[in-house]
Design a protein around this nucleic acid. Structure first.
Lengths: 355, 355
DNA sequence: GCAGAAAATGTTATCGTTTTCATTTCATCA
DNA sequence: TGATGAAATGAAAACGATAACATTTTCTGC
């Protein structure tokens, strides 16, 4: 049979493979394990081992290999490695927004923890739309992550299917459910709703309003709040806005409520930024906080405590969510037993000067 | 020769491969192109083509293939795809911090633009340390990204080598240099220093201070500022802090300056957050802004304009950097000609009430 | 000095795609 | 109608690593 010409440009070994010649520009494409092996005079597997299980190769060889790696500027190809070992050392994280410090605080901790253990985090921004999440999940799964971090517990049917059939550890965060896909770290938004109701009623407020984004979790807080208030014969005044919950929306939402005659009451916001905007509107109208209008935010962003007056807000440990999420996921990745697959990090109301 | 037992668990075709049987749990591992192909009765290549060049397969076949993909829940393996095609459709982005909205605004735009074109962004947080950057670059390069986004233009020697030998388009951002690794989108920090000096001198300030992080770019602004002031016989009062530039550091830095007798002057901060902290300290001491102390920030974060008094600050279009960076990188990725590989997005001083 | 175990290294097959080239099928036109 | 070329499909060989097993070398203890 006639030897066919090579299909792809094959890397041809330099005529005289000389260890000393550092500037060996003959190699097209990138340097592979094979190349390093050739330089040292061992087989590719040995080099692979030197990288992954250094204790399994002779110290002398190891040294030579490391030299060669240094000299050749070899950068491992994790695509190939992952394909072969079926471990990508990648963990995907799906968050509604990267800019919002509320989420990024959590993700940063998660990221750092995982990096310490040799994983890289592939971040995806899904906004607050379900279809977007579904699409994003499909995309990231095609990179074959070893695990996945999700924000929230409400996912479309197809999304759940995709996730489950990927057959990898999953951690849902920022929320709680009795039926997590795998594990969940967060707090109960229903409870937040109840607690806020209780808190405000106890403080003596008779009129209660809500300015809120319309995402799933905010809606659950709203429902709980509304139900709890109903028990006391109070009807919730609502102004909904579409995320992201900006300063301007807060101002607008508040104006809306005020225009509808809302006064002498407390307003619960779905983010501190919204509350901040509302404050501007209230000041602009010459009203007093908390005498005319009381405010309670959500999330305790850094500025909340420094606002004037300082904002009462629902506070929870964002970093703790990230840390726990990382820990639980790492345990699952290492096939360690996970004693609890549902972790409630709790929350409390940080009472300051706006209530 | 005796047939050796298979080395790896081989996926065994279901006894009766039946297109109708949706719940075919016989397949261990994940579903591959091969599986989809088998269901349709074509070869794997055809399925691959259906996904990558749908116009190249017969409409009838295409339809059957899409059905099969849907039915089997096939999720492509981009690791394998990337390995084979030498295109990962991944772009790495190295930023000092994900939480800091100053950077994340830029990255968000970059991310969105690239996603529209079918790329995914792998985000890495490098802090402000060089060694960290180097390490991170090595790590992300092992995923064989098609391009890379960097923050800043100062990289260690080894880092530059790694980047250059990766042989992929690069965009450096947030800074300017005459010798970019490839392309650069940003503004000149020296010019910022000069402009701030000019601005403050013109406003009549005779005494000028600086509270600043010690990262590379801030240091270049400082040097330029200091030099420009020297021309006018003014010496810069300096209080350095270690990043991240938090509210508390700003307060501390300001206290430091005040304790050293600084008064009746203007202070330039390396971030708006620092200025915000300083304001707290100034108020605490019963001093007036801008009469006793004038402030000028850097970055124009959302809160800057809403502070009381509103903060004068150095403003530039963060999103524009992200957008341009994406555009220039996409052009390079598509081998399109890039008319300018150095893009200056400029900046200006947003004068408000603290000067 | 030697059997046997442990340590170090090598061989081969495989991960799941895509590329290149070859082949088959189908339509077109003289 | 048959030659001709385009469209659709397929076969085989990579891509660059690692797992499993096989082999060789080195170390023990007696």
């Amino acid at each position: 049979m006639v030897k066919r010409p090579k299909k792809r440009a094959l890397k041809q070994a330099p005529a005289k493979s000389n260890v000393k010649s550092t500037k060996n520009k003959t190699t097209p494409g990138s340097i592979t394990l094979q190349d390093v092996a050739r330089v040292v005079g061992v087989s590719a597997v040995t080099v692979s081992r030197a990288l992954n299980y250094p204790e399994k190769v002779a110290p002398h060889t190891l040294e030579k290999i490391n030299d060669a790696i240094e000299k050749t500027g070899y950068v491992p190809n994790l695509l190939a490695g992952a394909l072969s070992s079926r471990k990508s050392h990648l963990v995907a994280a799906i968050v509604p927004s990267i800019v919002n410090s509320v989420y990024s605080d959590t993700v940063r901790l998660f990221n750092n923890k995982l990096r310490e253990s040799g994983y890289q985090v592939l971040l995806g921004e899904c906004g607050h739309s379900d279809t977007h999440e579904e699409e994003l999940v499909a995309t990231v799964l095609s990179r074959r992550p070893d695990g996945i971090y999700l924000t929230g517990v409400n996912h479309s049917k197809r999304c759940r299917n995709l996730l489950l059939s990927a057959n990898i550890p999953i951690v849902e965060t920022w929320d709680l459910t009795m039926n997590p896909l795998d594990t969940v770290v967060g707090f109960s938004h229903e409870q937040v709703g109840f607690s806020v109701a209780e808190f405000l009623i106890q403080k003596g407020y008779k009129r209660i309003g809500l300015v809120s984004g319309d995402d799933q979790r905010a809606m659950r807080r709203r429902t709980a709040l509304s139900n709890a208030l109903a028990h006391h014969g109070i009807q919730l005044d609502i102004a909904l806005v579409i995320p992201p919950t900006t300063f301007d929306y807060g101002r607008q939402g508040m104006a809306d409520l005020l225009d509808r005659g809302f006064i002498n009451g407390a307003v619960f916001f779905s983010s501190d930024t919204l509350a901040q905007g509302a404050l501007a509107e209230i000041h602009a109208r010459g009203l007093k906080v908390p005498d005319d209008i009381a405010l309670i935010g959500f999330g305790d962003e850094p500025f909340a405590a420094r606002m004037f007056p300082a904002l009462t807000t629902v506070k929870f440990d964002r970093q703790k969510i990230g840390r726990y999420a990382a820990e639980i996921l790492l345990a699952r990745l290492n096939d360690l037993p996970v004693d609890k697959n549902i972790i409630d990090v709790g929350f409390y109301i940080a009472e300051r000067d706006t209530t």
